[in-house]
Design a protein around this nucleic acid. Structure first.
Lengths: 202, 202, 202, 202
DNA sequence: ACTTTCGGGACATCCCGTTGCT
DNA sequence: AGCAACGGGATGTCCCGAAAGT
């Protein structure tokens, strides 16, 4: 029976439901009906608020990308403080949470979603591209401060870190990667360019 | 009308057709009908030679994994010759051809296929896992020869290289990555452990 | 193009369509498409209202079984009135209408449907089992009234009547069995136990 | 690899295989491939020896009907000996073996088979029709001998016995019906017409 | 004469977008 | 504006009949 009562915020309601389904059952189970059922609303609600199911997913992804801004600021604020490797490790762990990894997989699976995102100006691989930019600008700032070598190529370092970390988090999907593994990767990649003393130095 | 003419080798015929579809239209277009249509055979042919469509895909992936053995040998033979970075670069380029990248995406998209592969004993991420082992053994051999540092951790280096390279090839899907970009990544990752002079040194 | 108009009662609509198909083309022609086509609705309607095609058929059968209750009451009400043989004849004719006979055949043909019905608590042979119970309790009541012999074994008489009548209606499927044939069978079976005078007696 | 060796008797080989499948997996599993696989021969053999799959089944059924002749003779020979009820009980038990019951179900399930049988001159319900004739002639002979009432209507008694017995054997499919149950039914049906003393009389 | 394979029609199922009712 | 239903395209699978090959 139609209630006629407007949902307070259908967007967030549906986004959260979609994430729950995504985490619980995977990308292939994320159908339009699964979302509305999980949210406890009727199917039509989704199409009232979004042009399309792919449109809905695209906005979900873009929303998640927006949330990266917070992490981006935190990383920017850490410039010059602590150890570079630790800052990078924290950033990568924060970036590749279970939801983010699932979203990357979702984008890979859905052609329509990928097209929508591209046309919305997002990176080819969402979260990956933005994360790379985030890391690159952090490294750039550290380079300006002299904490990494002046000739370090941040446009090589950043995608390398992101690619390696993404694989780490994807491969061992169930178990949350120990911070140690990420730290090892970071140390390996920036070994040649880091100028500072290790973070555990006295 | 049935012809009765036995296909010379239905397996290869269908595998090749599947790859063409995969490259041309992507993983989501790789349906059983698309494969048989592309191969120019009837729908029944696929189900006579394979238990299942996912079974077919699994065998396709396993077949591609088997083909890695050739590249694995070549990489093993290159131990001690040329520059380590060049050997790695060649190996990564050989590993992540367009088909391989598409196959990784395919596995990510299909739950049933993933289950089948796991139960067949393949790595969680096919081609990625096997490629990592390949790189790790190569690095191990070079370490034994003293061409990379004795304390180099190949189990960190290998997945780092694979992860970074995979992203490189995935991100710029259409355009074949210039060897230069891969080489840059390799140089960055192994910068801290390589003992030899760069390949361009006199 | 979707109409959006809710079907008044999709269940009955589909049930009736299924019966028409069953009568006109037989059990083997009763596919899900045949039902929806006959009902003039889309394929999706059936799967929105029922879990499965076998689930649909199971509910159809159970619905028909439910309708027996009416006949069961009528038979119960006739206890002590008229002739026992006439009451039984009427009950059997009412039980084995063309639809019921077709449904029995349908259940024999479909494994999945049989499984579903068993798990729903129906008799092994639907309509047959319920019909037998109905006849048995009628005979029991008449025995209590003394209209059939006190030592009559209703648990033998009932299945005998049902089995004989079922064959009668099945064998001459097209032509509706003359009431006379059924009456003859009934008279034969209850010959040894009936106490009353024949119904045609003055 | 084709052997070229002619099968000794492909007919019997395939018939036996079909019966095994029928008993083990039921009528719905009796496909042409199931038969040839069970027989250990190639698919083509069936179509070499029979016009059609339904043609094959029709001949299988007709073959089984022919085997009834033996039982028919035995029953005929028993005229005037033993108890009528015992003779009938034995005949019914012999008639409705598991294979026969399965075959009746098979005919009910398959339209094409039914059509083929009808056009081959078999009864509408194979085995049932022939069994009815068999019982009818036996009863007729006993009537001539005065062992059952002169006014007994064998054309009512026979189908009644067959219908009741068929249901008995169909309903309790797994468990072989105890002879007692059949005897009870027989006693009930012929109660009014039998002239002899019970078989257990001194 | 047996073996093997292909060809293709049909069926149950899934999922999304749209439309009318409340 | 939310709700529930319909419409229909597409997918994987099955099974039979027929035609080559050995």
């Amino acid at each position: 029976v139609p209630t006629g009562i407007a949902l307070h915020d259908a967007r967030e309601l549906l986004f959260d439901a979609a994430e729950r389904v995504l985490l619980r059952e995977g990308a292939s189970a994320l159908t339009s009906r699964a979302v509305t059922t999980e949210a406890g609303v009727a199917k039509g609600v989704l199409h009232r608020h979004f042009t399309d199911f792919d449109g809905f997913l695209a906005e979900l992804v873009l929303d998640r990308i927006t949330r990266l801004d917070g992490q981006s600021s935190a990383l920017r604020d850490s410039v010059g403080t602590g150890a570079v490797a630790d800052n990078l490790t924290d950033a990568l762990i924060g970036l590749f949470g279970p939801v983010a990894v699932a979203i990357v997989g979702l984008v890979i699976s859905r052609d329509g979603l990928r097209a929508r995102l591209r046309q919305a100006g997002a990176a080819r691989l969402p979260l990956i591209g933005e994360g790379t930019s985030m890391i690159a600008s952090y490294l750039s700032a550290e380079r300006d401060r002299g904490r990494i070598a002046a000739d370090a190529d941040v446009d090589v370092l950043a995608p390398t870190l992101i690619g390696a970390a993404h694989l780490l988090f994807t491969d061992r999907e169930g178990a949350p990667s120990h911070a140690g593994a990420v730290h090892n990767v970071v140390m390996t990649v920036i070994a040649g360019v880091v100028c500072e003393l290790p973070s555990w130095a006295p």
